[in-house]
Design a protein around this nucleic acid. Sequence first.
DNA 1: CTGGATCCTTGGCGATACTG
DNA 2: CAGTATCGCCAAGGATCCAG
Lengths: 112, 112
Amino acid sequence: MKELYNCDVGCPIQNTLQVISGKWKSVILYHLFEFDVLRFSELQAKLPYVTKRMLARQLAELEEDNIINKKIYATIPVKTEYSISKFGKTLQPVIKSMEIWGTDYNDVYTSK
Amino acid sequence: MKELYNCDVGCPIQNTLQVISGKWKSVILYHLFEFDVLRFSELQAKLPYVTKRMLARQLAELEEDNIINKKIYATIPVKTEYSISKFGKTLQPVIKSMEIWGTDYNDVYTSK
DNA sequence: CTGGATCCTTGGCGATACTG
DNA sequence: CAGTATCGCCAAGGATCCAG
């Protein structure tokens, strides 16, 4: 069950949070925007501090929300590929603005 | 202690998350961007589902990060005012893009 | 290789009471 | 009014094992 933001004051931010607030979702999306298609193991490599379990959960939620597409190759061993869905691409401005800010003010936290 | 996103792969998104990932921070910022100045009790009224304790913590963290300014009037009873700092205003594109997406895709989650 | 199921620990967070 | 302090619960999340 994913966390719910029950906002009764009609704050539009809440809708966005529903989708990207997961602890690692925006980072996952960032990488997927950059590389278009990534396998599970590749994502794991990019987020080494995130456990497999959490990564799988976050991916599952993103897929539930139709933000990403999951493609399973029934080879042996199995292979999966994740990519941003058409709907997911609408989030690009959000992720991009976060990326820009994070780049501009990189020093703020690395210097701490 | 605030949660730490220890990303060693140099993902700029992480910097942004450090600042706005708190459970209610982006919503707080959204309201502060809209109203410029808000008292503690006014923020409470806008986020009725957030406990006073959590609101105070989120505000304290935002102040620590120099995102918001806190002004205390030593009257009786005490009165405080919160506003976005100069540095905090650099986050406007991020909050704004979240607001836009949330508005555009409002129906996605309200219809569920 | 890509997960799911299970167990177990931790700390996030609510409830309540207290203070200047 | 605007918080802080203390207690306690429960769910988020880690570790490990299992499976197709």
